[in-house]
Each structure stands twice: as structure tokens, then as C-alpha cells.
Design a binder for these strands. Structure first.
Lengths: 346, 346
DNA sequence: CTGAAAGCGCTTACAG
DNA sequence: CTGAAAGCGCTTACAG
């Protein structure tokens, strides 16, 4: 045990009071030194900051929050992540938020339909902001947020509630690129593999794809429903695909993980080889899409920009949580052609 | 704007004081009602709890923390997650921790060698506990934790510092299973594909594999170093593998993601087909290992039990952060044989 | 430019 | 079993 007489390693944290005493100043002055905008003599500030560094003083964020009514916390709400797109988003978003002085409280919803509970849970720590990944929530939960004065950003989804902010890829444009690519490769019988029906991403990708196909004078694409955004769902799509009357030759999947599952499903169950028999395009550009085993042609999400926009919005929201609802749709850069699409021989 | 005269949706949160006034009780009594162990008349407690529910009162966790010196926060420190094993761990661990009343502050280290900074960052919110995923940290950082009275659990790694707790799979046993499997399939020239050299997982898997191979009377396995736990690293292992004198016929990779990269690398660059030419075993049983495109034979991590043990330890640590260092090595259930290993024809 | 004082929303000895 | 009071570590009007 050390001289300073505390046990169990629970050293008493140094407080403003300690620092003030040490410096022969008032706590007010010490406190002010940590706020760049506060009025305090430059020399005084320097002295305080130096000594703080030496003594290892870090302002207690809780005490601070009680006064300022800002916690610098963002509640990050996620639900069952079956899509490998999200882990990267989570960690990168967290890193970016940290860089602007925010901290991330991670709340994991046990199921997609328990997002509301997760939001309430997140709210208990009075975050300045809530970011919802991969889900939407009820208007009731949204109301609780506004009641708590907490803004809400939906990432890669659009909120049903007009009070929510949103940051997504421009899915319509992306889906049109997929249609153009398939058509230009000579495919005429097109199909969309749909995932979670209520997701705005799913809806918009279908809409953009369908509209563009029709616009170019082709019959409306057929549609296979697989239920959600996962490998297993995509894999299970083979049966419905087989049941389609006239077999399509060009397939656009709701996203990459569904596309990968779909490709493997039709290979296993129907003996269909990609791109020999059909061309397939995905969406997201997850890591596996570039693996040589998959080499998936896909529309990359403009993730860098989506993250940057989210961080910027978060910074503004931290200052004023009541700024009017913003919806950002970032245009995808363009399609990456790999080996799941090819020119159709006629 | 509503009658109650506040703007921007920033409704004033209801406090103990409000609740006490409403009930005609003192704040002390109200406060006590929320602690099952506190002495308060059963009827009084019921009244308080009911009214709290109605008024939507939730104790302010910050105010509470200032007094109790317990934050109910666990700092979850992660670094660049190139291994798909971790996203699942993160979200599931978070969910379990939530279920015992802890909240997770996620801190993302920008690089594996910046874990120390991330730990300091996490410490600023005075977590009751820090959980480190996929990394170790310096003794200096460990010292800061103990100085702050914060315990530390290393998940899927072993700490160099004896003060840290650890929860890992029993990698030695797992690696021995891999050796036995390969040997029983008739392979005699064995090889280990090593990832991040300093990781305890990497070290132990090599050690268990090597020892078992030698124990069974075979020559020491050759070793290919690929640098870290990622697809790209595994993929890049092909060159070093080609340079090996006598080509091995049985390969054990440091983990699944490395195995997948390795298999694709040798196929692309060397024309080696698995399992036709060589057998390959991985470790972890990530989602992709069961995809039909990979069908990887692997040693699953006992993730359910690892999570349960971690949560249990966290619960005990929340009560007393100074309990002596525990290291849990959970035995893997057994090898899952898929299609990357086969009996060698002689 | 600095300091004394009030107060954020709680919990917890201490009395009664 | 309950209440009045002190105090956790800060910030911020308010004086000077």
C-alpha cells in the first residue's frame, strides 16, 4: 500500500477544488480556464492548464453535464446486425464522433421491433443526440426524443416521422445505375431481389430500378421477396426465383449480403452459375464483395461522405438540438464492375 | 408552442423534487424507494414507484453517479475490426451488459497502437469497468486504470499485465484439435499460417498446434507469417507458402478470416485448390465459414459461454472493482468439419 | 479579470 | 420508518 493511504487502487480523482487550492486561485477561475470562450487572463489560463496536466486533472463530465445540460453523449442504437456493412459504420462513426468531442453510448436492441425500448434506454443517459443505425422507430419513440429535447439521426434509413434527420445514400440513383448496367450488358429480363419490405433502402432501390427499366422500354422487372437483409435470406431466394415464369437474365439484389446469399443459393439449389447463366448486381460494396470468391459487381455506398455529413450534422445538433429536420441523400460515386455481370450473348 | 411554455421540445425532466412535492413526501424517502435494499415502508415504496411511472420519472444517472461513485458504465474499447468475429461480440456483449443494468460506452481506437489513448478516453467517463476487445495495452495504461479504480477485462486476448482480467477460448486445446484432425485425415506435412505475432491468440494457437504435431511424432510444422488477422493478410500468405521447401498438405490458419484469405490467395496465385491439393482448418467459426462458397472446417469459439462468463465477471466487478485478477479459458466445443479438409489419398 | 455563492439532481449519514 | 441537511464536482450569473 502506498503512502497516500488509499486502498484497492481507488485513488481519489483530482478535482477543481484540489487544483484551485494548489494554484491559490478560486474554483471559478480554474473552471473558466477550460473554456476557450470564457474571459480569463491568458497567463492565468496557461498556469491552470499546465498544472492540470501535471496533476492529471480531468473535469468530471457528469458534474459538468448537470450544469450545462449537455452530455456530449450520442446514443448509438443498433439492432441485430446481419449486414456486414454496419460494423464498419459503427466503428468509423464512433471514431469521427470522438474526434469532435462526443462520446458514443452503444445500445443494442435485442430485435428490430424492440428499437423503441432501446431508444428509451439510450434516452436515460440524456444523450445530446441519438443515431439510429439500420432501423426506424415508432412515432411514439420519436415523440419521447423530442420531449427529452434529443435530436435523432437515422443513418442509412429514412425516418417515417418528419421530426427525424436522415443521412442515406441516394438509393434511387444507385438503383438506376444498376438497371443501366444490366441493360447495357444486353439483359432484357430483369429481376429485383427484395429484402426487408419496410426499409426505405429496399423500397427506394426497387423503385429506382423498376422506374429506370420501364423508362428504357423494357417490361417491369419481376420481384423476389426474401424478407430481410441477410445471407440466409438471399440464399433462400433461390426457390422463389426458380418459380418465376420466364427466367430473368439480369438480377439486382437489395444489397451485397443478399446478393452473395442469392448467388450461392441459386448455385447450390438450381445449378445456376453467375455470370454464366445470369448477371447479378449488389449494393453497398461490403468487404466480401471484393473477395475473389465473390467478385461482386456492386454500387458502393458513399460511406466516407455519409459519415462526414453525419458528423457535421451531429456537431451542429450538439449546439442546437432543435434545428429543423434535414435529410441528406448522398449520390453514389458509380458502379464497380467485377465478375458477376457480363455481356449477354444473343 | 404548447401551454406549458417551453420551447424547442426541451421539456424539463421530472426530478425527485417534483415527485416528492407531488407525493407530499421528502426527497429522501422518494430516493430510497428506488433502492430495493433501502429501508422504507412497503406501501410508501409502492406509491412512489407508481407515481414515478405515471410522471415518467427516471433518476438522473449523472447525479446518482456523483454520489454513489458507480456509473454503471462499461467502456468498450475496440480497435480496427478487420475480423468479422467482433461485430457479433460487440453487439451481443452490449445486449448482455444492458440486461444487468450496465451501459456501454464505445470507444474506437484509430489504430491498434493507439489503444492506450482510447483507454484514457474511456476512463474520462469513469466507467466501472473497461472491456478491451481484440487488443492488449501497455502497462502504463493498465496503471491508469488501477489508479482510477477501474477494472479491466481483456476479451479474446490475454493481458501482459497481471492486473487485467481475461476471458478467452482455450486456444491451446482448440489448436490441438486442429492438429489431430489434420493428422487423422492423413496429412503429414503440416503448416501454421500465423497472424498478428504479439496476439496471445496467435501465440497460443501456434503453440498448441506445434506441440501436438510433434507429440504425435511428426516433424515440426512449417510457419507462414502474414502479419495480422485479416482477409488481405491471409491472401498475401500465398507467396510465402509457395516459397516453403516441401509443400505442406495440411494447413491450420490463425483464424477463419485469415483462412479464407489464404485459400483464395493460393487459388488465385498458385492454382492450389482446397481441399483437392491441401486441407485447411480455421478458428472462430465466423458467419462466412458456413457460407457454401467457403464451407470452412474450423474450431468454433465458445462464444456463448465466453459472453456469459464476461457478463458474470462484469457484474461482480461492478460491485467490487478490486477483486483479484481472473483468467478464464473456455474450452472449445469441438471442431466443425466442412469441406476444406479431406482424407489424403496415399 | 477574479471570487463568493448558488445550484444542477441526486444519495446518505444522522436524528428523531 | 421518515425528514432535514450536507455534499458529490462542477458552471455561471452576480458583484467587485
Amino acid at each position: 500500500m502506498s503512502d497516500d493511504g488509499h486502498k484497492g487502487g481507488t485513488r481519489k480523482r483530482v478535482t477543481v477544488k484540489d487544483l484551485a487550492r494548489e494554484l491559490g486561485m478560486s474554483v471559478s477561475t480554474v473552471s473558466r480556464a477550460f473554456y476557450p470562450d470564457a474571459v480569463v487572463a491568458p497567463d492565468t489560463r496557461r498556469l491552470v492548464l499546465e498544472r492540470a496536466e501535471e496533476m492529471g486533472y480531468r473535469p468530471n463530465p457528469f458534474a459538468r453535464s448537470m450544469i450545462t445540460r449537455r452530455t456530449q453523449i450520442v446514443g448509438l442504437v443498433v439492432s441485430g446486425i446481419t449486414n456486414p456493412f454496419y460494423p464498419e459504420v459503427m466503428t468509423r462513426l464512433t471514431a469521427e464522433l470522438q474526434s469532435i468531442g462526443m462520446n458514443v453510448m452503444l445500445v443494442s436492441a435485442s430485435a428490430p421491433d424492440r428499437i423503441d425500448e432501446a431508444v428509451v434506454q439510450a434516452l436515460s443517459y440524456q444523450p445530446d443526440l441519438i443515431v439510429i443505425l439500420a432501423a426506424t422507430m415508432s412515432s411514439r419513440a420519436m415523440a419521447e426524443c423530442t420531449a427529452a429535447g434529443t435530436a435523432c439521426i437515422f443513418f442509412n434509413r429514412l425516418s417515417l416521422d418528419p421530426a427525424g434527420h436522415g443521412v442515406t445514400c441516394d438509393n434511387i440513383t444507385g438503383a438506376r445505375m444498376a438497371a443501366d448496367h444490366l441493360i447495357e450488358r444486353g439483359h432484357r429480363k430483369l429481376c429485383y431481389v427484395a429484402a426487408f419490405p419496410d426499409a426505405s433502402t429496399n423500397i427506394e432501390r426497387w423503385q429506382g430500378f423498376r422506374d429506370r427499366v420501364v423508362e428504357r422500354g423494357l417490361p417491369e422487372p419481376s420481384k423476389v421477396e426474401v424478407g430481410n437483409f441477410s445471407y440466409e435470406a438471399g440464399f433462400s431466394g433461390a426457390e422463389a426465383f426458380a418459380a418465376l415464369g420466364d427466367r430473368p437474365d439480369g438480377v439486382f439484389c437489395a444489397n451485397d449480403i443478399v446478393a452473395i446469399g442469392f448467388i450461392e443459393g441459386v448455385r447450390e439449389k438450381l445449378g445456376i452459375e453467375v455470370p454464366r447463366d445470369i448477371s447479378v448486381v449488389g449494393f453497398d460494396n461490403i468487404a466480401m464483395a471484393s473477395w475473389s470468391s465473390h467478385a461482386l459487381t456492386t454500387i458502393p455506398q458513399p460511406i466516407d461522405e455519409m459519415l462526414a455529413v453525419t458528423t457535421d450534422l451531429a456537431a451542429r445538433l450538439a449546439v442546437d438540438p432543435s434545428i429543423p429536420s434535414e435529410v441528406h441523400r448522398i449520390a453514389p460515386i458509380g458502379l464497380i464492375e467485377r465478375e458477376t455481370t457480363r455481356v449477354r450473348e444473343t
